[in-house]
């Protein structure tokens, strides 16, 4: 299994994502530079967190136009697995790979906090190593993480199993619609989430619950390392 982790100027959690991917048995990870186009033979893409291009415009709005994102969009269109974390989630929404948008938190402040996240759909390539209803302890850290989609869209997503993760009751840190923490596209090969699973892969730093997402992505993929 070979993960590719996209690196924009302003990406902060790129090395963390590489470390997390490499904790999965038989997996390796490479960085994918925003200005390049080659996906370097990877099996899955992670678009990590940070502040791509400073996020001085609407978050993720510039990153989606980078050469590497063109390749990622093509990869996703061909059915490849793409996981967007935090800023990566915002970029994937901007790129039209995921429904909905991320708005400023209701508190209008950056919030860094360990939260409980419930696996709503464990029958996905991103969560198949989880048990349905399993509650994961994963940190969030963002200013713009309030998931929004029109009511009709939310109903359709609900009906098609596209809502993958929810914040536990009373634990919604940002005011997301329906406590949504992570969603998939209709094709079920692209997922975005605001919590940072790459920061929940080591008992010493707080939790290993995030590792199941990377492990899920690796299930069934060729072993490489």
């Amino acid at each position: 299994m070979r993960f590719g982790v996209v690196q924009f100027p302003g990406t902060c959690d790129d090395r963390d994502a590489v470390l997390a991917c490499e904790r999965v048995d038989g997996a390796e990870a490479v960085l994918l530079w925003h200005g390049e186009r080659s996906l370097d033979g990877i099996d899955a893409v992670v678009v990590p967190g940070g502040f791509s291009y400073g996020d001085y415009l609407r978050v993720g709005a510039i990153a989606r136009f980078s050469p590497m994102m063109e390749s990622v969009i093509a990869f996703a269109s061909a059915g490849g697995s793409v996981l967007g974390i935090c800023n990566g989630f915002q970029v994937l929404c901007e790129a039209g790979l995921l429904p909905g948008a991320l708005l400023p938190n209701v508190g209008l402040r950056f919030v860094c906090r360990q939260v409980a996240v419930e696996v709503v759909n464990a029958d996905t390539r991103f969560t198949r190593a989880c048990a349905p209803g399993q509650v994961l302890s994963i940190p969030v850290k963002h200013t713009t993480g309030r998931y929004y989609a029109p009511e009709v869209e939310l109903e359709s997503m609900q009906a098609h199993g596209q809502i993958v993760l929810r914040y536990a009751p009373d634990g919604n840190p940002n005011g997301s619609s329906n406590d949504i923490a992570g969603v998939m596209n209709a094709g079920q090969n692209v997922m975005g989430l605001m919590p940072h699973p790459e920061h929940a892969v080591d008992e010493l730093t707080g939790s290993v619950d995030g590792l199941t997402l990377f492990a899920s992505m690796a299930l069934g993929a060729p072993a490489r390392a």
């Binding site: 959690d13 090395r15 963390d16 950056f110 919030v111 790459e198 730093t205």
Partner: peptide, 11 residues
């Protein structure tokens, strides 16, 4: 402290 990222860089 909740307004600061205290975990980036995984250390």
């Amino acid at each position: 402290f909740e307004q600061y990222d205290c975990i980036v860089q995984s250390r």
